[in-house]
Write a protein that binds this DNA or RNA. Structure first.
Length: 428
RNA sequence: GCCCCGAUAGUGUAGUGGCCUAUCAUACGAGCCUGUCGAGCUCGUGACACGGGUCCAAAUCCCGUUCGGGGCGCCA
């Protein structure tokens, strides 16, 4: 089926014969002429249709909004239509008729509720502003992938079905695995580290992470996409540098892309690097200075994070987190065991990435496991990799949805998930 | 898991005990209009989440259920 994409029509010459295909977003029927607003994934254009015979009249009466059509016509670049470009229809064929009324309107001025939108997500996604979100996300990821590739990272795929509670902390979803009980992995952390022992030097993975947490917030999903890296012979500073350059590369890729075509393009601001660093302790000091209570050794509340974030206009790192709030594998700071060589990447009050230098000495790792109330025996498959030559290493995990959300200034993470999995939704 | 709030046509809403035979917009259907562009105009179809209770009378008050929203907590 040869066809012209709608966004390219304005670049073609007047009077040219064109074939377009897409959805009929709106139909305006007058006595002798009808106007169809035809949309494909690149844009929308008006097609005119002379109602000068019974066949055409009948066809127009049969047409419904959101039906799929194909039409051949002559490009008119001197049209009184908005944008000055329209197509004079010569031949119209209905490829698939839509039922009426629609469960949610595409062209209607009334916006549907969240629940209605996600119950009819395939329709909701037909709106150009929704489609745009996923184009941006794709472009962002391509930018990061290309950058990591240029830094000699190998893209890997680790198992999502795992045997044991991997890290403590987050709850896992259980699955039946033949005669055994298994779980959906909450992060590729342990596998990435084993690959450091395996000599991969630098790996990254883009994949789903599952968290069986009963949270109900605009910034959590129970299944989200995590971009994870791990790098050998590196510390937390190397990892932070790699992170800020990855984020910049991703955003640059969005800014330079032609993703938007003729859709409304958003102002994408490429951030300056290096991002500012502020230690956990300095954040507490800042809160105290502003009359807000906060004790050492706990995570920030959303309210506290909002205050901390006021100091920065975009991305910044919070470093040196206390070991109480970090995972067992996080490397303690030399000369100060209360804090760790760890960091979070924040955007104002939102956490996007968590990372750290990892412990590479097995004795220390076992000690930390016990301190966290975990049983080293459960981690034997993992600890083994540390006994035969594990290089020092560091890494991070970045929430793709969260980064996209920030870039587009969206208020709910579900907007950035095609089919979000939250506390109650598993369909569609 | 805790607290707060909500559920009315396909969609989004108004309606705080009788004036509800339920408002408005949009969608949908029929028609009018020689070019619309948030088209316009006329007519029409279409709804009180479910179960129980209070009351002469319930969309409206009470209880429960289901579903949803917001905030918090939980959360490498």
């Amino acid at each position: 089926m040869s066809r012209n994409y709608i966004y390219e029509l304005s670049g073609l010459e007047d009077g040219k014969r064109v074939d377009i295909a897409g959805w009929v977003q709106d139909i305006r029927k007058l006595k002798n002429v009808a106007f169809l607003m035809v949309r494909d994934n690149t844009g929308i254009i008006q097609a005119t249709l002379k109602l000068d015979n019974e066949t055409t009249k009948h066809m127009i009466n049969e047409l419904t909004r959101e039906s799929v059509i194909k039409l051949t016509g002559i490009l008119n670049k001197h049209s009184p239509a908005k944008g000055g470009v329209e197509v004079q229809t010569i031949d119209l064929s209905l490829l698939n008729r839509s039922l009426t009324p629609l469960p949610l309107g595409i062209a209607d001025p009334v916006e549907a509720d969240f629940d209605t939108r996600f119950n009819n997500r395939f329709l909701d996604l037909r709106k150009p502003e929704r489609l745009k979100i996923f184009h941006v996300e794709s472009e962002l990821l391509w930018g990061i992938r290309k950058f990591l590739n240029s830094e000699h990272f190998v893209e890997v795929h680790t198992p999502k079905i795992v045997a044991a509670a991997t890290e403590g902390g987050a709850d896992l979803f259980g699955v039946k695995y033949f005669e055994k009980n298994a779980y959906l992995n909450q992060s590729p952390q342990l596998y990435k580290e084993m690959l450091m022992s395996a000599g991969f030097d630098r790996v990254f993975e883009v994949g789903p992470a599952f968290r069986a947490e009963e949270h109900n917030t605009p910034r959590h999903l129970n299944e989200f996409t995590s971009i994870d890296i791990e790098m050998s012979f590196s510390d937390h500073n190397d990892a932070m540098s790699m992170l800020e350059r990855s984020v910049k590369a991703g955003i640059e890729s969005v800014a330079l892309s032609n993703t938007f075509r003729d859709l409304d393009s958003t102002e994408i601001e490429v951030p300056e690097i290096p991002f500012p660093r502020i230690s956990y302790q300095k954040c507490i000091d800042y809160l105290h200075k502003n009359g807000v209570e906060m004790e050492f050794g706990v995570d920030f509340s959303p309210e506290q994070l909002k205050i901390v974030g006021e100091q920065f206009k975009s991305f910044y790192f919070i470093t040196e987190w206390p070991s109480q709030v970090r995972a067992f594998y996080t490397m303690p700071k030399e000369n100060n065991n209360l804090v760790t060589n760890s960091f979070d990447l924040q955007y104002r009050d939102k956490e996007i990435t968590s990372g750290a230098q990892r412990i590479h000495e097995v004795d220390m790792l076992e000690k930390r496991l016990k301190e966290k109330g975990l049983n080293p025996a459960d981690f034997e498959f993992h600890l083994k990799a540390f006994r035969y030559g594990m290089p020092p290493h560091a890494g991070w995990g970045l929430g793709l949805e969260r980064l996209t959300m920030i870039l587009l200034d969206l208020q709910n993470i579900r907007e950035v998930s095609l089919f979000p999995r939250d506390r109650t939704r598993i369909v569609p």
